[in-house]
Simulated scan of single mutants.
Amino acid sequence: MYVAVKGGEAAIANAHRLLADRRRGDRSLPSITIEQIVAQLGLAVDRVMAEASLYDRAIAALAIRQSCGDLIEAIFILRAYRTTLPRFGYSVPLETADMQVERRVSATYKDLPGGQLLGPTFDYTHRLLDPSLLHDAPVDEALQREGGQEPIMRVTDILADEDLMEDDGTLPEGHVPGDLTREPLEFPMARDLRLQALARGDEGFLLSLGYSTQRGYARSHPFVGEIRIGEVDVELDLPELGFAVSLGRIRITECQMINQFKGSAKSPPQFTRGYGLVFGQSERKAMAMSLVDRALRASEFDEDVVAPAQDEEFVISHSDNVQATGFVEHLKLPHYVDFQAELDLVRRMRREYEAGRGDKTDSDIPEAAE
């Protein structure tokens, strides 16, 4: 017997109260603060900001706290909040060449202008649990960020000087950036819109697709030309002033992936680019994004589209974790009428199946294998 769940608004209100109780946890422990989340769970904050398309560390930390640490739920909350905000205009393109670099590594040149800067990274840790973190560890007060750093040239500029790197690309005069948060998806997409979709796409999904390109499910032989993590100025053009003014600085991660290209009837042999840029410190996401970006450029280079990572509609339509969450989790909602219809259909098909078997003689039924 199929019995409907009862309770209505009272049950929902009680569920909210129970969730708030679980969120608070053990009352004998101090409540976690927004400042603690921002300062000590910074990489989680960065992911939420990136995939929600809203750079605000305190609000992202609030969403993480509200969602009990469920980052996709926090991303959902932050996107919903984002829709309530006014829009004042478009910032000018970020000048990442002028980045105040905290970390900068290249897999293509050992000795390069500006040097390799390891910065804060898990790359050289042993991935063993550190029992000292069960208690407050001493802080190295000597670690201070250095200021006044000169701009560091790009690795891709070295190859461009030899005419071995494709052009960086330009946008038409007066080009207005698209906005996936206000306009429905349309395929095929311009690359600026596609990069926007990838930047807010789910890190795990893009990581899997990027990995697939390395395993042969796309024509890809990538090298990390350069990964940069640091702060850049965000500027806005003010027509009444006639020049751009700085709105502040944000931390970003930029990855330029270099791929060999043997050439075509229209293009000479050269290196081509895959590009990733993400809010905060998130180099795994930026790398995955750059791998997928290059795979999605297959048609630009007359390459055969043979792998999922090269299929624009497949990638973009399934990369949004908020949309994916909505479709998957809606299965928890009542489907009583639909299920009753399915139940009646399966019962009828089963009766017809049993009736068909009943008409057969013993000679019609194959003997069981001995």
Rank of each mutant, 00 (worst) to 15 (best):
E300H: 08
E283R: 03
S282M: 04
H318A: 05
S267L: 12
T325Q: 14
Y336K: 14
Y353E: 09
R284I: 06
F271G: 13
E313V: 06
L291A: 06
E313W: 04
K266P: 05
G280R: 00
S267N: 09
F279P: 01
K360M: 13
F327H: 10
E283T: 06
D302E: 12
L343Q: 10
E312P: 04
A309E: 02
K332S: 12
K266V: 14
D311W: 14
L331T: 08
V278M: 11
R351L: 13
V346S: 11
L331R: 10
E352M: 11
L277H: 00
L333R: 14
K360R: 14
G358E: 10
G276E: 00
L343E: 10
E329M: 13
S282Q: 04
A341M: 09
D293E: 00
S319H: 10
Y275Q: 02
A288C: 01
F327A: 10
R273S: 10
S282C: 01
H318T: 08
D304T: 09
E303H: 04
R357W: 06
Q281R: 11
I316Q: 05
P268A: 08
F279Q: 02
A265Q: 09
A295E: 03
E354R: 12
D304L: 12
D311T: 13
P268M: 05
A324V: 11
V322A: 11
A355C: 07
R347I: 07
E342K: 13
D359G: 08
L277P: 00
D311V: 13
V278A: 06
S299W: 02
A288Q: 00
I316M: 02
L345H: 15
T325G: 15
L343K: 09
E300Y: 07
L277T: 01
V346D: 05
E354P: 03
V306M: 12
A288K: 00
H318L: 10
L333V: 07
R357N: 13
A355N: 10
V306E: 10
F314A: 07
A355V: 10
R294G: 03
D338A: 15
V305Q: 07
V306A: 14
E352D: 14
R294C: 08
Q340K: 13
M289T: 03
E303K: 02
D311G: 03
D311Q: 14
H335A: 12
Q323P: 05
S282I: 00
E352N: 15
R273Q: 09
V305N: 01
P268S: 06
E312I: 02
G274F: 05
F339Y: 15
K332Q: 12
E342M: 11
K332T: 12
R294I: 01
D302V: 06
L296W: 02
G326I: 06
V337T: 15
R294S: 04
K360I: 13
F279K: 03
A286T: 01
V346Y: 13
V305I: 13
K360D: 09
F339K: 11
I316K: 06
T325V: 08
M349D: 14
M289K: 03
A286P: 04
L296N: 05
S319T: 15
A286C: 02
